[in-house]
Nucleic acid binder design. Structure first.
Lengths: 144, 144
DNA sequence: CAGCATCCCCCCGGATACTG
DNA sequence: CAGTATCCGGGGGGATGCTG
């Protein structure tokens, strides 16, 4: 049904997986929470402060989602004062490990990205001012 | 101002990187587009059909963002009919490579996640029906 | 302390129509 | 073919107030 006529199967596989990844940790907070849990179990308010910027509501929602996916466990301790700890499951830990190449990539290329953005923005600014239609349509194709 | 009092530096580093990652590919489409570009340059409508479900608008927006970040190049060919090709930059390709562990992880654990969700949902269903407050507060701590 | 319920705003993103 | 411009609805997510 999906008109993926000429695409090799590997492409669709990658795309499908990407969809799932985003469904898992593509939201605004899940990955952050997982990061903070990698260093051991944490309590609710610990996470609340650590993730910094997250609201109670979103922390709860995020934790529930991750728990539902089997990525972390929620443990209620019946003491006074009562507290709850969250801890990555083995699967959750493997997820974190799978993300580390991406995290490493980010730190390594952060400067490049900033530079690229600055260049792009500067170029866009120039194009607007000079209003050079030639610059957009003419042979700006790279020679390789 | 950010009350990250007790956290070891490594935690904040991970969290900071995670933020950037999400800013880059955390949106709904970027990663999908990058996946489809890994197999060589593609034209606009090729991507439009391949990514399947993406609207013209979002494809344009996504491509612009990726171009701005220096992850792909946009090349206008002045022929009839005119067409434009998009291709990953070297940096874009390294990004894709950095994501592959995550993509692999997904395929490997997809079944586990589905299972965990089904279990969680079943448990939730049961809790609602039986309305067992004890089940939520009592010692349901895992024994490991 | 941990978390649910409610209200509400914003903006992501889809649909449609128009251009070079 | 490859966009841009405009409208607009749904839901992500923040703020606040209340429970066990």
């Amino acid at each position: 049904m999906t008109a993926t006529n000429g695409e090799p199967p590997a492409v669709r596989q990658g795309a499908g997986r990407a969809r799932v990844v985003l469904g898992l940790v593509g939201d605004k907070w899940s990955l952050l929470v997982v990061c903070h849990l990698d260093h051991g179990p944490r309590r609710f308010t610990e996470l609340k402060r650590a993730v910094d910027g997250i609201s109670q509501r979103m922390l709860t929602v995020t934790l529930r989602g991750l728990e539902r996916d089997g990525l972390l466990t929620r443990t209620v301790h019946n003491v006074m004062p009562p507290h709850v700890t969250y801890e990555l499951t083995p699967m959750g830990r493997t997820l974190y490990e799978a993300t580390t190449p991406l995290l490493r990539w980010t730190t390594e290329h952060l400067a490049d990205i900033d530079e690229a953005r600055a260049e792009y923005d500067a170029r866009a600014e120039y194009d607007i001012r000079a209003d050079t239609p030639a610059a957009r349509s003419a042979g700006n194709a790279p020679d390789r």
